[in-house]
Design a protein around this nucleic acid. Structure first.
Lengths: 211, 211
DNA sequence: TACCGTTGTCAACGGACGTTGGCCAACATG
DNA sequence: CATGTTGGCCAACGTCCGTTGACAACGGTA
């Protein structure tokens, strides 16, 4: 069942329209790529707004202006669609050139910029809370993206996971209250206030010799 | 439709079995109270484990050992069941007798005890992320339970909402990573480590004159 | 022109869900 | 005994979901 669909599922999400060098084979931009990105865009919006269960394939297809069965052809299943739609890259900055005492502020500032209006991140958090696959996605981001950065600034390599976990708790808590739950008291804080309050916290979690 | 069910829905959840004084009328514990609490217990477990959508009335009823239609008779609807099952009381301590510089540690310590194995809290957070009613429930807890405590220790009354929001971000972030997402790095931290690291953070959010 | 892969629509399946209403057994009360 | 209330099961309803398969238009190529 569904055997010949795998060819579609495995296609990479490449085909950069803004090609720099028009040189080599130029893989002839397929017409389906338009539909493909339309589905992905709609899926990110729906997953971010409604979570995994309430974001139905039918609704996503309607947003994308095509038939629900097309979603299945392109991504194989709802899980496949989620996996393709949510590809989180925190784009964390390299902290080695940053003065050690500025790392905390830099991270908080970067996180605020990153989360602002980012539907992939909101979708990841919404889905991660209810869905096992989503939870593992978050842990993958923690392991592959936050841990390496923490390693750059933490004094004792052995303490890196604990210190990174403390930072994750603070930063995800901010994302949760401000961007997902949309608590008024959290949204009322300005960017500058948040950086001023939470920067030193993250800084301490990362570099303080002891609590 | 469903008119005569309202009598059931409005019944309070009282009838404390561990009565202290056997004195007055002794309202004859109805046999239905057993079923009632069985449904509520099962509902809390399911909501905590699966979130609102995946926690089906059929599954809850099976856990409670009764027919799904009984859940409707007792609580009117799925929303009614959720409202009855999740009645969060943070039991926050009175901070006025606590030394001012110990408030942060006391709060973190209390939160850890509270969340440990508490399915109502996990259910509230799981549901709040996907469900509007759940999100409002969380905001109600913040407004009615955390804000008053913050008012006890914050220097400037005008800053109370902002400072409480910072604390909520830190504490909910801890709950999220440790008890809901169950991130290994967060679970690996001991109670003492968490109090030692996060206590001063919450303390600073509450009482530091400025960032 | 004939052919074949691509892109798309349409109608349906099987299942799970919340919810409803009817019926039944027990039991207390007259 | 007759009667009304309470606590419970059962079968079904309408709906929505993910998913499938058949089929139609388009487009490049032999």
């Amino acid at each position: 069942m569904g055997q010949h669909l795998l060819a579609y599922v495995c296609w990479p999400t490449l085909v950069d329209v803004t090609e720099k060098h028009p040189s080599p084979p130029a893989p002839a931009p397929r017409r389906s790529d338009t539909t493909r990105t339309a589905i992905l865009t709609a899926a990110r919006e729906r997953f971010a707004a409604d979570g995994y269960d309430r974001a139905t394939i039918r609704a996503i297809a309607k947003d994308a202006g095509i038939d629900p069965s097309m979603v299945m052809r392109y991504f194989g299943s709802k899980e496949g669609l989620f996996a393709a739609a949510i590809d989180v890259d925190l784009r964390l900055p390299d902290l080695t050139p940053v003065p050690r005492e500025e790392a905390g502020r830099a991270l908080v500032s970067h996180f605020l910029d990153l989360w602002e209006g980012n539907e992939q991140l909101r979708a990841m958090l919404r889905v991660g809370v209810t869905n096992q696959a989503g939870a593992e996605r978050i842990q993958g981001v923690f392991r592959d993206q936050l841990l390496p950065v923490a390693r750059q600034v933490c004094p004792d390599p052995e303490q890196v996971p604990a210190r990174a976990a403390l930072c994750a708790a603070q930063l995800l808590g901010l994302a949760l209250t401000r961007f997902v739950l949309r608590m008024p008291a959290s949204q009322a804080l300005t960017r500058e206030e948040l950086v001023a309050w939470m920067g030193p916290t993250v800084q301490r979690y990362l570099t303080a010799p002891n609590p």
